[in-house]
Design a protein around this nucleic acid. Structure first.
Lengths: 126, 126
DNA sequence: TATACTACTATCCTAAAGGATAGTAGTATC
DNA sequence: GATACTACTATCCTTTAGGATAGTAGTATA
């Protein structure tokens, strides 16, 4: 019988599993630019310089590196169209859609946290 | 009439709001230790050295710094019990519960991502 | 031929995160 | 009095992230 054990949510193993899974997620989303880039590309495909302009102050070295990492994780594909001259666009993959719920929750929490901070400045705790 | 504009999810302003909110969240959860610490404390209050042991390889300097940051963000309270000698415990606040959905989604995505990677190693893409 | 655009790469540098190691002040135990 | 525990702090060092600046190779335009 494991009916009691089943209810113990936070044994050591579960914790380790949770920590690993959360770290895995943050590992692929980490850094200053990946999420902004993904959000920027939700408008549709963009070229290298367009992304650079959209993000404002990212340098080409960093942009190039981040794009490669997003490609490796299959969030983005690099498409070369054989026009003359070639034009290269980056676009989100269907897999990037799997991040929707994560992004939604991160966004919601961020909004509520900010509101809470502003509220607590107006009326500091006793 | 803004019925059409209402459906445009990804205009520039919305993107900026999303980016800011997501960044706010990652800002308070960032680093190698905060989420593992929060998960470790879901078992109940722990003392300094207990947390250190639970996390395995965190140094006291880092643990101290991270605890201070978690306190500042009101995820953790430091409780001093006036026994002799005093014992100091750290425990999660009710506010830390607001992270539940975020943690859940981060965890779920991490698990699925890992499964996907393992599956793609078994059967590499054509 | 000069200028300018595209999509980058190369080199160097700074700042922040994190870790190793040692030390401190207090209490308690042997 | 020596050792050991608690809850840390202090100092130094390494690693990583990210940025500044310049350059490259190709194409196109004036």
């Amino acid at each position: 019988m494991e009916s009691k054990a089943d209810k113990i949510i936070h044994n050591k193993e579960t914790c380790n599993t949770n920590v690993t899974a959360v770290r895995d997620t943050l590992y692929v989303l980490n850094g200053k630019w990946k999420l902004p880039m993904i959000i920027a590309l939700t408008n549709g495909p963009k070229r290298f310089n367009e992304i650079q302009r959209a993000l404002g102050d990212i340098t080409p070295k960093i942009l190039s590196k981040e794009l490669r990492e997003l490609e490796l994780n299959e969030f983005v594909v690099r498409k070369v169209s054989s026009t003359v001259p070639v034009s290269i666009t980056y676009e989100l993959t269907p897999y990037s859609k799997s991040l929707e719920k994560v992004l939604e929750e991160l966004k919601n929490w961020g909004i509520e946290h900010r509101e809470r901070i502003i509220a607590s400045r107006r009326q500091p705790a006793a």
